[in-house]
Design a protein around this nucleic acid. Structure first.
Length: 529
RNA sequence: GGGUCUAUGGCGCAGCCAGGUAGCGCACCGGACUUUUAAUCCGGUUGUCGAGGGUCCGAAUCCCUCUAGACCCGCCA
């Protein structure tokens, strides 16, 4: 790669934006405003993957602006989605009766938002706010209530036979050859999937439906038997996913939307519907892999399996999230909180490259790294480098110091020569590193076996620590005590680490004991004598 | 049935999307320091880049075929 053919800042986002622009030119569409869209689920607790969808779309918006176009991100919450499953940890709220109702019609069990759906969406929006993403928020419930999609719904229902056949051909799903791709909300019981629409009365813009028992997953949802007609311009209902995107793209004039591979088939159908039925050239796409939970690791157990932005931010900076999401788009990823430390350090490395403190010979890599750094800073990079402290070092230090943590870790960092003066920037890092240490420190309470001879030796050490010994001598003292009492120093040190740190290794023990405080250590050790 | 991704030292991974010196962490070996543990620091070893073919001056990277594994869709959204 040379200077002249670098697109934008040189990363995949720029390439995507340039593909998009090329396509728009070919189509000859107006490019005054290029809208990008991201969908938010509102039926469950938003995973960092849902955040990723919006963050990446925002990246494309930035890339478009960077080359002189106006762009806007629509964050669309599908809060007409029906509640199908009660999320982990929410069984206590008695949501059973609301199963199959649109999440925007279910009261917020936490009582802080106007509905269950809004509560969930807000968690995601809060995450976006915290990492600095700007967006225009729209809700499905308002979109349908205001009839913004009524023309598209009308066209789709008029062509339902053609669409049903095409869905069957493209993805092998035959359901829509029988039913309309539109689900009214039952006027009697407020449920969504139970109302089956069989006929569209074109002149009246109404669908006929009957509320019957239906199966979701392995559960049977009882319908109320109501038969009625729903006005698609007024009454509540929603298009099936296989056609809904297309309606929205056309109505909102969306030019770009990324999607996860799990909805690949839906996108395929929607592209066709958009192009052929609604006569709106579908937006440019990029497909991404889903984030998977780490297999076989215990880390998620205490936390539930959901990695939310909020939880991530307890342990890592907003930039670590942006780095995760902007560094690449391809490739299946197993993701866990244990990835945070390397991302924190990787950001520092990028910053060093950006400010020329690390030399990179390969011009292409240099351009890419700099570009990535700019995107992680949302194309508003800092003027000066921040102070860098290795995040893993911070975690180790915060493991050791639990009391007066900030002050003592800061002092250690100054001792080590990592920093010169206490900095508020570093204070924040110590806080989150401390959170990480507290949450993930393997408190395996390894049963420390202390036999009689060891007890004796420990007692001698406790006495020694309680005397007025100089800290410099602690290391030697321990060694001497072990040796003169026929205990292998190796074993003795190991036992000490186990008692003090809960691990079998650690920092040099003499200075370490004086860091914690001799009296304190003596007290801990005496419990084993 | 349809589709996507992954395969790189002993282990875990980066590099691939825009071809140009195969890299990192852990482990391992050696040295320094330490009164022999540990920690720290310095140095070092480890690779037919899953297999085969193609394009190219040049392929881990691009194209095709194959093998193995993971996941998604074929309820719903």
């Amino acid at each position: 790669m040379t200077e002249q053919n670098t697109i934008g800042k040189g990363i995949w986002i720029d390439k995507l934006a340039s593909e998009l622009l090329e396509r728009e030119k070919e189509l000859g569409r107006n490019t005054d405003l290029l809208r990008v869209e991201s969908g938010l689920g509102a039926s469950g607790i938003p995973h960092i993957g849902s955040l990723g969808d919006a963050v990446r779309a925002y990246g494309v918006k930035l890339a478009l602006e960077n080359v002189g176009y106006k762009s806007e991100l629509i964050a669309y919450s599908d809060d007409l989605d029906g509640l199908r499953k009660i999320p982990e940890g929410m069984q206590k709220f008695g949501l059973e009766e609301h199963i199959a109702k649109p999440v925007s019609l279910i009261p917020d069990p936490y009582g802080c938002h106007d509905s269950y759906g809004m509560h969930m969406s807000s968690i995601l929006l809060d995450g976006l706010d915290k990492v600095g993403i700007k967006y225009e928020f729209r809700r499905a419930v308002d979109t349908y209530k205001q009839g913004l999609l009524k023309d598209q719904i009308h066209t789709i229902l008029q062509n339902s036979v053609k669409i049903g056949d095409k869905i069957s051909e493209l993805v092998g799903q035959e359901k829509y050859q029988k039913y309309l791709p539109y689900f009214p909300v039952c006027a009697e019981c407020n449920r969504l999937y139970t109302a089956e629409a069989t006929e569209y009365i074109i002149d009246e813009k109404k669908v006929k439906y009957r509320c019957h028992d239906t199966e979701i997953g392995s559960k049977i949802i009882k319908g109320c038997g109501h038969e009625g007609e729903a006005d698609i311009t007024k009454d509540l209902g929603k298009l099936a996913w296989k056609v809904e995107f297309a309606a929205r793209w056309s109505a909102f004039d969306i030019r770009f939307e990324a999607y996860g591979k799990d909805i690949m088939d839906s996108v395929k159908v929607n592209d066709w519907v958009s192009d052929e039925i609604l006569k709106y050239p579908h937006p440019h796409h990029v497909k991404y892999e889903m984030f998977l939970d780490k297999g076989g690791k215990k880390i998620s157990k205490s936390l539930g399996n959901v990695i939310t932005a909020q939880k991530w931010l307890e342990f890592g900076s907003p930039k670590s999230i942006l780095l995760l999401l902007y560094k690449r788009i391809t490739g299946a990823r197993e993701l866990g909180f244990e990835d945070i430390p390397s991302l924190m350090n990787e950001y520092n490395e990028l910053e060093d490259i950006y400010f020329g403190r690390i030399k990179v010979d390969n011009q292409a890599k240099l351009t890419k790294s700099k570009g990535l750094f700019e995107y992680v800073n949302l194309l508003n990079p800092p003027k000066q480098s921040s102070i860098h402290v290795n995040y893993r070092l911070l975690i180790e230090l915060t493991k050791i110091f639990k009391e007066n943590r900030n002050e003592r870790v800061m002092k250690k960092l100054i001792d080590y020569g990592v920093i010169k003066n206490p900095e508020s920037e570093i204070e924040k890092l110590i806080d989150i590193a401390g959170n990480f240490a507290d949450e993930f420190n393997e408190q395996e309470k390894t049963q420390v076996d202390v036999d009689e001879s060891l007890k004796k030796v420990l007692k001698i050490l406790v006495d020694a620590l309680n005397s007025k010994e100089e800290p410099e001598d602690i290391q030697n003292t321990i060694y001497q005590i072990a040796k003169s009492n026929d205990v292998q120093p190796k074993d003795f040190f190991k036992i000490l680490y186990q008692i003090i740190l809960g691990t079998s290794r650690g920092p040099k023990i003499g200075p370490f004991i004086s860091d914690i405080g001799r009296k304190q250590v003596a007290k801990i050790l005496s419990e084993y004598t």
